[in-house]
Nucleic acid binder design. Structure first.
Lengths: 200, 200
DNA sequence: TCGACCACCTGACATTTGTCACGACCGGGC
DNA sequence: GCCCGGTCGTGACAAATGTCAGGTGGTCGA
């Protein structure tokens, strides 16, 4: 019997996934959480064989939870995600994630994947793996990424400079540099590109 | 027995929802589709009692499919959505949608909701209903909305003017007007606000 | 120790953008 | 008729933005 802790912030999806896994004779969902922190607490209490975590969650996301679980109680995680972002896959594998499943995966495969991971294998969606291999590794510096993160929600340069505690000239330079590196015309496009690649 | 056609572009979620509904004795999923157009074809072929449609789908989205189904074979629809956008709810109800369920709804409630809708009732998530009532109705003109749609993916004014076949001065005027009406500083924030409200 | 390099920051400059005032056209109400 | 609101455009101005040359300090390998 494979004992699982399941985390997804959308109740409907989490419940549906639980129903799906409940159909399998050898899988048992022993706990459900709606955010990463609760998932970690549940896992430390129940000691499941496996954690199935949605990547996009408020507060601690799936990646943060997976890292915790892999370090402390040594519980392997499978991440489920809507957006197949190559950079995120790389970081996830570095943080001890054992399976990476986009939501476009056929439902019938999920149980098999969990069994494989439980048996010690790893699973990575072939599509994402391919794009992660061909993907240009991130050409941006940490500072550039930080400012792109701020730029992502559409504020003015001044607002960004305030949040980052920098002069606006500096902010403009970093963003300009990022824009040239990515070959786009505006910081918004740059921010979107960086997000899509999974660089943050 | 309530016969249902189910549409969601994410295979994993669609399969999980099917599993969830399959647990109910009085509900049968007679067809599954990954986009709105296929959902409509399936529904015309199988004549289900109800269609459960994800709102966010490529090609025809859930709203378009629901409208078709309500007009032609007269099949009622329940929309499932991730983002609770008040404007979308209003349009949906106008297009004959009978149920509006955000993905934050507890999984255990879904079956009840489908039964209610099948019995002729309507269901609208109370949270969204409240925000739709208090929401300011859209103060923007069609042209302003159109340009905000273009602005939403981050191009320059020139690019937008090209797509819309307008002079850049005109584009700036419309966007500026939209920005003042919404009380924001940049066209990107304006575009995001309009999207969040469900105005497009 | 030196130079090369990189991340970091700044100021000056040209372009883009937002704002405003204005005019023309069209359609529908009063 | 007249007025009003939406559409489309122009020109001008100030502010925000992007671009560039340059400066500082630290690390690293030769």
């Amino acid at each position: 019997m494979i004992r699982i802790v399941l985390a997804d912030d959308e109740d409907l999806i989490r419940g549906a996934l639980a129903a799906l896994l409940g159909l399998e004779d050898d899988i048992e969902v022993v706990g459900q959480a709606s955010d990463g922190r609760t998932a970690v607490e549940l896992a430390r209490a129940h000691r499941p064989d496996l954690a199935v975590l949605d990547l996009e969650m408020p507060g601690w996301d799936g990646l943060a939870a997976a890292k915790q679980l892999s370090e402390n109680p040594g519980i392997p995680s499978v991440l489920v995600t809507r957006h197949a972002r190559p950079g995120v896959l790389k970081r996830a594998l570095g943080d001890g994630v054992r399976g990476f499943v986009p939501k476009t995966t056929p439902a019938s495969r999920l149980a098999e994947i969990l069994r494989d991971v439980h048996a010690g294998k790893r699973y990575v969606d072939p599509e994402i793996a391919a794009s992660a291999l061909t993907a240009t590794s991130c050409p941006l510096t940490d500072r550039e990424l930080e400012l792109l993160r701020y730029a992502h929600d559409g504020g003015t340069i001044n607002a960004i400079a305030g949040q980052a505690h920098l002069a606006q000239g500096t902010v403009r330079n970093y963003l300009s540099s990022a824009m040239t590196k990515l070959g786009v015309e505006t910081r918004y496009e740059a921010a979107r590109r960086a997000w899509e690649e999974g660089w943050f």
